[in-house]
Every structure is written in C-alpha cells, then in structure tokens.
Design a protein around this nucleic acid. Structure first.
Lengths: 191, 191
DNA sequence: CGCGTAATTGAAAAGTATCAACACTGGTGG
DNA sequence: CCACCAGTGTTGATACTTTTCAATTACGCG
C-alpha cells in the first residue's frame, strides 16, 4: 500500500551529495501541496527523501482514484519524462515531504550516462508494472472485505496521515462501504 | 485494448536480421499454447512479430483477470528478466503467434550495450505503467456500460479471436453481466 | 449426425452505491 | 470559557448493480 525504494534513494542521495553544484536540489512540501498536476507539463523528476504522498487520477465522474501511496525512495514524474508527455496523474503531499528534484534533462542525461542509475530506473518501472498488475487483478476479483483484510496492517498505523476518504479512493469504493465492511470485520473479530 | 509497439518491433527485427548467428530466434506458437506460465521461471524475453496473445493472472478464486491483449511489437517476460523473479502472469497465444525470442542474458546485454534498445525498453515499460494506471482508474469508477462503450470498436473486429469469456475476464465481470449490458446497449441503439 | 465448447437467459441472492441525517473533533473568535 | 464552524467520520434506509446458479440454446467440426 505504501511503496518505498531504498536502493534508489541511496543512489540519488549519493548523487546529490557528491557535488555541490549538482542540478539535483532538495525541496520541501507541506501537507496538501500539489507537486505534480494532471494534464500539466512536468519539468522535473522527484524522488522522495522523507514523508508520504499520494498519487491519484481524477475521473470525469469527479472521483479520485489513488494509484499509490509513495514514501522513501519512490519516484514520480519519470513516466512523463520518458514518454515526453504531460502528466496523467496528480501527486499531493500527505505529510511534510522532502524530495530530491531532478530536472528532466538531467534525468535523461543520468539515464544515458550512469548505468547504475539506468538499472535502478528499469527496476523501479518494472516494480510499478508488477504491483499495478497484481493490484488491479486483485481488486477486480475480490470483495471489499477481502481487499480490506489485505491492508489491515496499514489501517491502524497510518490513520493520522491517510483519511478514510483516501483509503476508500485507494480501494475504489465509497466511504459508506468502507465503514460498513470495517464494522462487519470488527464484529467477526477479524480486525 | 490490444497493444502494439511498432518501434520496438522494428528495432528487434533489425537486430534479428543483422547477424545470422544472433542469440535471437524466431518461434511460432499455435492458439492456446502457453508461452509463459505463472509462478514459473522465465528464460527468455519475447517480442511479438505477428498474431495476438493474452496476458493474464489467475486469482485464488480461480478467476482469470486479463491484463492486456498483446499484438505486434509488444514485449513480455521483460519484467521478470529485470526483476530477476519468477513470472507473475501467464501469456497464451490466441491466434497463431510468431515471436522473437531473446534469451534473458542477451536481453540484459542489450540493455547495457545498446542505447537505442535501452531507450525503447524504458518507453515500453513507461507505457505499460501509464496504460495500467488509466485502465485501473477507469475500471474502478465506471459502470460496465461505460467500460463496454469504450471498447465497442474492438468488439466487432475481434470476436473471432477473443471469446466472450475473455472480454469478461478483461473487464473483470461475469459473462452474464456482459450479455445483459450488451443487450441493454443494443436496445438503446448504442451498439 | 452427434459431441463438446461457447453463448444466452431468468430468477434469486449478494454486494455496493446513493442520499440524507447526525456525531465528533480541533481550532477560532467573542 | 464557551459557542460556533468546517472538516471528517458514522450510520440507516433504500435503490441499484452485479454475481451466482442452473437450465437452454447455438455453433463448429470430425
């Protein structure tokens, strides 16, 4: 539910520290700040140093669907940089968020010149495909109850950062269904 | 609904033709042949030269969820090669299928030594993430009717290759729901 | 022609959404 | 210190959507 990527974080923080005039800069966002906005051009690739963000898509129905919650080492903006397209999703800080900001052009440069970085991006993309595949499949063929049981460990830990509405948006259900199912699980003693 | 990747096909067929003792080989599968099997080790990366295949995941409920229909130039097995893990999905030929088969080790070699190939794989992965994100979001927040209207152009063209069951598995619904909704759309004159 | 597979349909059951009302919480200003 | 407000969370009743299950029908092919 909350993705991390320690390897990538390590690589980027090393790149950042290795030279004082690096194009990579550190930046801090406050909760509710929008870092990337759907349908807008993206000029940088971001890698999270600390904090939590949500990556979501707003449908024509007005409903937000949360793709992922990102934390340490997770990258976003890279899809847009590689495809050379405007953003297809929004990313918003949920907690205070510190990121490494890599200008798109320098990101492209790193991809070409730094084999280790290239390899880590290939892995990060592969992992995204993998997790998305698994999640979509699971979501389509299981009930709300099953989906909730799957993330019960997170439910207690992050309620102060992630609202009920956001959990519902992540699962693709309404808050009403979320509450009903949570109660059912409690009476069954499964939560 | 049916993905293609002309650029990648062009690149790989050039690689294939450029030397007679290339590690890349051509291989043909008949309909219903399994090319990659869930939970099994994968030894090659495949790129489709011609034909259609389905990529799907089997859930513990016994239900198949189809991730994508692949056609010319689409690649599979690359996620497993990059992550160095067993397969998380199965790929099955729907029509007669001709593929270029690249041994995993040679695929890794190409990634490192051939910048153009590397760039095309980055793009292919980014596209997969992009399309999966859009599709999952759409699926979660729209009715069966909306989902069907979205692929109505395909529905007529590929019925001889793709069964009703497979369309249902792609949409994550039952054939009963598929039929009911198709009938409703027909009486409404929308199909 | 007959067999197996795929497609179709109706009726009942299960699962979710919608809507509207109400409760709780933390902060603000009188 | 308390009243108020906005945002978030909770709940019940009802309507709608989708699945389940079982029974039929249609189709392709040896």
């Amino acid at each position: 539910m909350i993705r991390i990527n320690k390897e990538l974080l390590h690589c980027v923080s090393t790149l950042y520290q290795s030279c004082t005039d690096s194009p990579i800069v550190e930046q801090t966002f406050e909760p509710k700040n929008l870092i990337i906005q759907e349908q807008k051009k993206v000029f940088s690739v971001y890698i999270i140093k600390s904090g939590i963000a949500k990556c979501y898509l707003t449908e024509d129905t007005g409903i937000d669907f949360i793709q992922e919650f990102f934390s340490e080492g997770e990258i976003f903006g890279e899809i847009e940089a590689i495809r050379d397209e405007i953003s297809f999703c929004s990313v918003e800080a949920l907690s205070q968020l510190v990121v490494y900001k890599i200008p798109t052009a320098y990101f492209q440069h790193l991809l070409k010149q730094n084999p280790e970085f290239n390899q880590l991006i290939l892995k990060a993309l592969s992992n995204k495909v993998y997790y998305k595949a698994i999640r979509h499949s699971y979501n389509q063929s299981h009930t709300v109850e099953a989906k909730l049981l799957r993330l019960k460990d997170y439910l207690s830990d992050f309620t102060h950062l992630i609202s009920k509405q956001e959990i519902a948006n992540y699962l693709g259900i309404t808050t009403r269904s979320l509450n009903r199912t949570l109660n059912e699980l409690k009476t069954k003693g499964l939560l």
